[in-house]
Amino acid sequence: MTILGASLLGGALALDATSVGQLMVSRPLVAGLIAGSLAGDPRAGFMAGVILEIYLLVAFPVGGARFPEGATATVVAAVTAATYPEPGSLALAVGLGLVWGQLGGWSISAMRTLNGLIAPDPVRPAVPPARVVSAHLLAVLLDFVRGALMTGSGVWFARLAVERLAGRWPLGLPDTTGLLLVGAAVSVGILLQSFGGFRRRRVLFVTGLALGMLGGVLLP
């Protein structure tokens, strides 16, 4: 997949995350499959999306809070993982995707500050409708461009990093899995707290845990 193609996809998914629709096709679970398919390896892209989804389960666009941007993070990680099949590339792709997600969150904050300058000023005695329409559409366009630039630069940087470092990744696949799982476990803990905490939800959580472990053991 070309950097331009990844950028356009990242821009479109960034729009879905907050500005237009919010149908959540921008969530890592979905974006990973889309990006991986376009990059030629849907399963590798989806896998990157699954891991990022677990990490970002606790990142929601609540109010004006700054949050890691899952859409651009996932396109960066999924395209990288789909392009480079080496064991270390998935871990690097996920890690770099998360770094880019954080940068994406900062870029959203900067864009929202800029939107404040573009937005019509309600202190003026009258606001023409055309002023509202142009400001709103310009802000949506800016969000698309921002998402595209974040994604394009991320994919470019990730390629450089993976080409130089993936072959020197010191962990085998089982340990890489373990490393990624440790990070994911923190998110699971935070989400349980967000759902009400262990003390309040212990019966349901432990029941689910037992069912999950049973399923994990019994699955063929």
């Binding site: 799982l181 699971v188 989400l191 029941t207 689910g208 845990l209 999950g212 049973l214 399923g215 994990g216």
Partner: peptide, 8 residues
């Protein structure tokens, strides 16, 4: 969430 943790 419990099921997910158990499966992982």
């Amino acid at each position: 969430l419990g099921v997910l943790a158990g499966l992982l």
